[in-house]
Computed example of a mutant assay.
Amino acid sequence: MIWKAVTAAVALALATQVHAAEKKYGTGASDTEIKLGQTSPFSGAASAYSVIAKTQAAYFRMINDRGGVNGRKINLITLDDGYSPPKTVEQTRKLVEQEEVAAILNPLGTPTGLAVRKYLNDKKVPQLFVGAGATLWGDYQHYPWTIGFQPSYQAETRGLRQICADQQAGCEDRAVLPERRRRQGLRQRLQEGVGAGEHRQDGGGGDDL
């Protein structure tokens, strides 16, 4: 579902740049191609997150092999920023001014995303699905060309707290449930035995109940 949403957003970004009457397209789009840019930490301490960019590249290759989006192939250009804001600025400017991409797709990080947010909004280049959980990515009044991707860290924390509370309650229930069942079974057998005229010989066995 996530990747379907990404593909739909790509198509929407293209649609906003089309001048249908003249059959002309905005920067990064043509009859045959949709050119997207991305920055990701292929090097540095956060390089493990580059698997996201690699997965997206593989997904778009699959889409292209199936004919693309309305006949257009998706050309995703991903550059390494090392999770360094100055490097992100440099690489993003390259994507916008040299590669002339239609949009920046799912760049990783709050500090890196903030470093280029104003620049992209001034250029009216969509900054789509920023991979960061800060609440500031919802400031559409001031930065209408920027949209976040994931729940905020605060929302995630509240969700985790509820999950932990539910799991703790579940663990406690599982701990006492076998004993409850054993006691219920003993009561039932005792009642059945008394009803059939049986007599206990052990004095009642009150400790088991």
Rank of each mutant, 00 (worst) to 15 (best):
N106P: 02
S152P: 03
T157R: 10
H142Q: 11
G138S: 07
N75E: 15
I147K: 07
Q154N: 06
N70Q: 12
T146V: 03
S43A: 12
Y143A: 10
S84C: 12
Q154M: 08
Y49T: 08
V69S: 02
P85F: 15
I74F: 03
P111Y: 11
I147Y: 10
A155W: 00
A155H: 05
K94T: 15
R158T: 06
E90I: 01
V130K: 10
Y140V: 13
G131K: 01
P86Q: 14
F60T: 06
I104P: 09
L105K: 06
K123I: 05
K123R: 14
A102L: 09
Q91R: 11
P107L: 13
R93C: 01
Q127I: 01
M62G: 04
V96A: 12
L128N: 07
L136I: 14
N70Y: 04
Q38E: 09
M62T: 13
R117F: 08
G109R: 01
L128G: 09
G113F: 05
Q154P: 00
T112L: 04
I147P: 02
M62I: 07
G37K: 00
F42Q: 03
P107S: 12
V69G: 04
I104R: 03
I104N: 05
Q56N: 15
S152E: 00
G109N: 00
A132C: 11
I104H: 08
G113W: 02
V96K: 12
E90F: 04
A134P: 05
A132H: 10
E97C: 05
G113T: 00
A132T: 08
Q56I: 14
G67F: 10
Q150Y: 09
L95V: 10
V51C: 13
D65H: 11
Q98K: 15
G138V: 03
D81E: 01
T157M: 09
Q127Y: 08
G109Q: 00
I52T: 09
G37V: 00
G131Y: 14
Q141S: 14
K124L: 00
A46P: 08
T135G: 11
S84E: 13
Q141R: 11
R72L: 03
V116P: 01
P111V: 02
S84M: 11
E97Y: 12
A103V: 01
Q38S: 07
G133Y: 13
V89G: 04
Y49D: 10
A45Q: 12
A103P: 06
F60W: 13
G44Y: 00
K54V: 05
E99D: 11
G71Y: 02
A46Y: 12
T55Y: 13
Y140K: 15
Y83R: 01
A48F: 07
I74P: 06
T110F: 11
M62C: 00
G68A: 07
N106A: 15
M62D: 10
R158D: 13
T92I: 08
I63A: 02
T39L: 05
L76Y: 09
Y49M: 12
G37D: 00
Q141F: 10
Q150G: 08
K87C: 08
A57G: 04
G148N: 02
P107W: 07
V101S: 05
Y49F: 14
G67Y: 13
I77N: 06
R72W: 03
G82C: 05
N70S: 13
K118T: 15
L108N: 01
Y140P: 06
I63E: 12
R93Q: 09
A46L: 15
R66G: 03
A58D: 06
E97N: 14
T112R: 02
Q98S: 15
K118A: 14
